[in-house]
Structures are given as C-alpha cells and as structure tokens.
Design a binder for these strands. Structure first.
Lengths: 356, 356
DNA sequence: CTGAAAGCGCTTACAG
DNA sequence: CTGAAAGCGCTTACAG
C-alpha cells in the first residue's frame, strides 16, 4: 500500500463512522459516557483509516507537549551521553520525548537555547549548565516558570530540583590513598572554578589532607582551567616542567585525564611508575591500560534516570517540596596508584632503561 | 521581575497596540504590506509584553514543526554521540531541533519510535537503524512520506537519501598492512551480518586478500555477532583458545575492540606483541595505550553534518534526485601492527619474561 | 494598508 | 449518551 499523502483527521474518522468528531475524541480518550456501540463504530473507522491523533493539535489544546528540553554542553562527552540515555529511557516510558541541544560550553548559546525550548513549549527542562553564575542564563531561567532539574549544579536564587554527585567522597578516598603511599606533591587538575563539581572535588581533596594531619596545602598544586582534553594536556605539561614536579596527579574528569596521559606520554613518563595517576570518571579503556588507571567512578546513566524521575514527579505535583538527590562516587584503586619513586631519573634516562 | 504565569498571546499584543491580531502577525512575519507606523506600534507592544509567538500554534497552522526525529541504537556509543552532535549543530543553525530516541538495538522499539515521531509530526528523520531487513521497521518507514536520511544503511524498496562510510577502503588498507607483515591467520570480528557496514568491511578484507594474490580465505576466521563489547570479548576468547589461534585481529568497531583488548588481557597476551591488532574507530585512549593501537578512523561528526545538510536540502526540494554521500575511512598504522612472532611462547611464559 | 473571518486538528464544557 | 459550539494561538486568503 502506498503511503497516503495526508494523515486522516478526526473529522474523516467521524464521517466514516457516521458520528460527531467529539464522539470520536471521547471514544479514543476513554471518556466514561460512551456507549459500547459508539466505541465499536469509532474503533472500526479508526482501524480502517489507521487514524492517529495529531500530537500537535492535542498539545495546543491540552497545553502540554509531553516534551522535555535537555541542554548539555556537548553530547559527544560520554558523561552527558550516558546521562541523556538514562533520562531518555525513563521519560520515553512515560510518553515524554527529549529535545536535545548542545550549548558547546557557551553560556550565551545556553541562554538562547533555553529561550528556544521555552518557545517550543516544553513541559520541563533538564539542564547541565556551564556556569552557575552566568547572568544571561540566570535571566533566561528566571524568565519562565516551567519545572527545571539541574544536573550537578546549585544556583542561588533559582529554586529547582537537582541531581548531584558526591564528588568529594571519591576524591577524598583517592587523595587519602596517595597520601598513605607517601605522596606529598599531589597535583590536582580541575576544570572551571565556577561549578559545584569543582568545588566539591576540592573539598574532598582538602578533607583528605586535613584527616591526614596536614593542614597546610603549600605543597599542593591546584590547576584550574576547563574540563577539556587540551587543558589537561597543557596543565600537565606545565607542572611536569617545574623544578619540583608532582609525584601524583588527580585529573578531575576523563577529558582532562586523557590530556594528562598524552602529556605524560610526550614527556616519556609512565603513569603508575614515574607519576601516580587518578582520573575522575571510569572508562573501560582506562582499566585496560598498562598499568590500569585508578579512577573515581560515578554512574552517569543513573543521574539521567533520577533527573527524569524528579522532573516527572514535579510535573505531577508542582507544589511539592524541592528535592536534591545526591549520587555516590567511588574510588577504584588500580595499578596507576603506587608509592612515589625517590630515585627519580630524568625522563630520557627512565625511558632508555625501560625499553632497551 | 517575577516570571509571569502565562506567556502573552498575539491577542494581548494586538489589544495593547490597538490593532488586529492579523496585523501583529504580519508585522512580525515581515509581510510586505505593513506600514512603518503599524510595525512600530506592534514592535513596541511586543517588547513591552516580551511576546514570543507560540511555536506550537505556528506549527499547527503552518504544517511544519521544524523538528527532526533522530533515532540511534544507543546515544552512549561515542560514534552516535558524535553524529548527533554534528547534525544538531547544522540543524540548529537552520532553526530545527532534534527529538532524540534510543532504540537500544531493538527493531520493535525502532519501529515504535518511528511511529511516535511521526505522530509528533516531525518534518524529517535521521535514522541509524539496527537492521536493513526488519519488516516492522520497513513497514513503519513505508507507512509515511516524511523525508528520511539513512545513516550507513541501504534499504531496498525505501527511497531515501543516505550518508555512508567507505569502510572497505580503510579495512583493505589495514588488511594489506597485516598481510605484508607476514600475517596469514587474521581474525576479523564483525557485528551484525545484516548491515551495510559489515558487508562493506568484509568486502575490503577480501579485496586485500585478492590483491595480495590469495584467493582462498580458508585460513581466515570471520566471527559475526553484534557490535558490542561483550561479543568482542567472547569471540576473541573463543578464537584465542583454538589450536591454531590468529596472529592478528581486526575488530569492526570500538566496542568490539574494547572487548578484544579485555580478552587479550585476560589471556595474558599483549597486543602488538603476541597478537597484532587493528580496531575500527579512533579513540584517543587507543593512541595512548602501550603500544598504541592501529585504527581505521572515520569522522562521526561529519556524518551528522552531512546528514543534516541532505535532509535540509530534501525538505526544500522534495522532488530533487536522491543522493548518497560516501565519507572516507582511513587506516592509521601504529605499534599494535607488527610482524607475527614465530617463536610464540605460552601466555604465562611470555608474561613472566616481560615482567620479571 | 488593515481588519474580520476561517481554519490548522484537536478537546471539553454545554445543551438536549 | 451524543452533537454542536467554542476555543487552544496562530496565519492567510478575502474584503474593503
């Protein structure tokens, strides 16, 4: 059968069934006051014409699009891809679809996208924002009353539900492990300073030092830049070239971590041998490296699922109290975390010895 | 300013400006017959009320939602994430948004999602389908007349634009490289046999053998399963346990490749030493492994951009001739591709020697 | 150049 | 229980 050029409308169903359009609507929407005969006649016509209600028209009439606007900085970041996947599955099972937009880390674009999605009358937002302080974004958020779930962000003055990671616990465990092994020069490379994730990771870092009885962080090097491979690469290169380079590095996410590995590689240094390494975010390839890389793991998909659940609950009960759900992180100890080598040779010498 | 509970409508703008709603619409849509005074009065009211036309109402009236339905099997697969990113950027710059759905590799779900998206009146589809032969999916596709761009699939009887990868060239180069190094037992692990990608890769594999003067593929082991980490793992384990295991493995995508690496690891074998390895799809971590892993690279984002361009062109010119754009793949030679070792020791012995 | 009317495809009070 | 009417918020022929 050739595809019909036009989808049939409720009027055509009504004509075929010999009833009023309103009756077709009631029959399809399980209205209580519909006689069995009416229902049967309608259903027959619906089947014959393969009628499907126009979602657009329903949305306009009902004031709900069953659509969620989802903004991430970059869907090709595996973390966001995982979150979107989790959210999509949960939302889809409730009849909601996702309009996905990338902000590319640009707060202006972020604010613009919020506007576009609002104009498209989404029923809710799930937002992974770049910054917690950008005024354009905040204005765009305040400028609308649709429910919002924020991912790993806390924004003063904007009352929303949120899903957060407990970064500090995982990072504290990682830092403790390094301190116990004897590391004192630990370099921590984090992205943007303006986000909860960075603050929380640093908190864990400092907590571990305090618990270890070290109150001064003078020997600690903290690099703050962006959550990107290139920043990780440049920051690592820079600290390695110092007079007194770190014996251990913690990279605050997998992009930074890849940059760190690339920089170590370029310097002829091996992780877990010349420099101990912990990367925040688990990726199977990190476990397959030689030696396997220690990580602080978290469940991206779970964050997506929980965000969807919070949003669905909020849309059902707009006035219920706001909720923040905190998801755990876990330090996984692997071969890249070892005691510092005291007899450090130059990079070149080390390489020559290792690969004769 | 508190967010208004209701978005202003065109009527309210008209009332404030003291004109008819139709005039507001004309002024906003740059209709030629609008006096400068009218335009000015309307714009003033629009500014004051911060009016934004309801996209939903416009869509219903104009018969176009400026929305594209995008189905992938799994957005957390980096390949699809890259494709979606490329497409989203191109579409967004033309005022189109993406409704994203995951099929989870289930053809039934795929067909269902096509229906959902059709009901939502998307203006076009970009589809990364699981199978080229599933009858449910084919019926869902034939059952509608919205433009479709297929990704790396060719479906008989469904006339669509398409973006394809030239897998065969990259795989042929990889295979040639292995043959020239002396490999004769090459294992090729591909996913589903029902897709163009698999067929095309096998074609390249066979072409390289033929060019090398080997017409019989008796010594070649081809494993066909799914494009998943677990299949890669199991298939690799199986072939390694044969009496006459392969000296080289080509994994048809990065999921399979990760599984292969894990299996080699479990057997105490090293890639680029005990077994040569080529993985289809480049990932930076593969370059950072020791030794770096040879790959067949392709540009996922580019596929997304081109798909969006084809779809936009098709929506503008529904009757123009169908197009298929073929994107290149490139073999990148790295340390995991070496001559076969003739003095193969047992896995345990090899490991003992390597790590004294 | 402007306004009143019709209509996109639905749903839901309102009569009967 | 069913149908005719109104209306969601727009746009666009149609008059004037």
């Amino acid at each position: 059968m050739a595809p019909s050029d036009q989808q049939p409308t409720i009027k055509e169903v009504a004509r075929l069934a010999g009833v009023a359009p309103s009756s077709v609507s009631r029959a399809l929407n399980d209205h209580p006051d519909v006689s069995p005969e009416m229902r049967a006649r309608v259903m027959e016509a619906v089947e014959e014409l393969r009628y499907e209600p126009d979602f657009l028209a329903q949305s306009l009439r009902l004031g709900s699009t069953r659509t969620i606007g989802f903004i991430v900085s970059d869907i090709s970041n595996p973390l966001f891809a995982g979150i979107v996947k989790g959210a999509e599955q949960e939302l889809e099972s409730h009849g909601y679809s996702i309009l996905l937009m990338n902000s590319l880390g640009d707060p202006m674009l972020e604010a613009k996208h919020i506007g576009v999605l609002r104009q498209r009358r989404v029923d809710g937002f799930i937002l992974s924002l770049q910054s917690e302080t950008n005024s354009e974004t905040l204005r765009a958020l305040r400028n609308q009353s649709t429910p919002v779930v924020l991912l790993d962000r806390e924004i003063r003055g904007v009352a929303t539900d949120a899903v957060l990671f407990d970064h500090s616990t995982g990072v504290a465990e990682a830092t403790s492990a390094l301190l116990k092994l004897g590391h004192r020069k630990i370099n921590f490379i984090v992205g943007s300073a303006e986000t909860r994730g960075s603050r929380d990771r640093l908190k864990g870092f400092q907590r571990a030092y305090a618990a270890f009885g070290i109150s001064s962080l003078d020997d600690v090097v903290i690099e703050v830049g962006s959550y990107s491979r290139d920043f990780g690469f440049e920051a690592t290169k820079m600290v390695l070239e110092r007079d007194d380079p770190p014996t251990a590095i913690i990279a605050a996410n997998s992009q930074i971590g890849v940059g760190t590995l690339a920089a170590l590689n370029e310097h002829g240094l091996r992780h877990g041998e010349d420099v101990s390494l912990v990367i925040c975010d688990d990726v199977e390839l990190l476990r397959l490296m030689d030696p396997p890389v220690s990580v602080v793991a978290r469940d991206a998909e779970k964050m997506g699922t929980v965000a969807a659940e919070l949003l669905l609950a909020r849309m059902q009960e707009p006035e219920s109290p706001l909720r923040s759900v905190v998801l755990p992180t876990l330090y996984i100890h692997r071969g890249s975390t070892v005691a510092p080598r005291n007899d450090r040779r130059t990079a070149t010498a080390a390489r020559d010895i290792r690969r004769p």
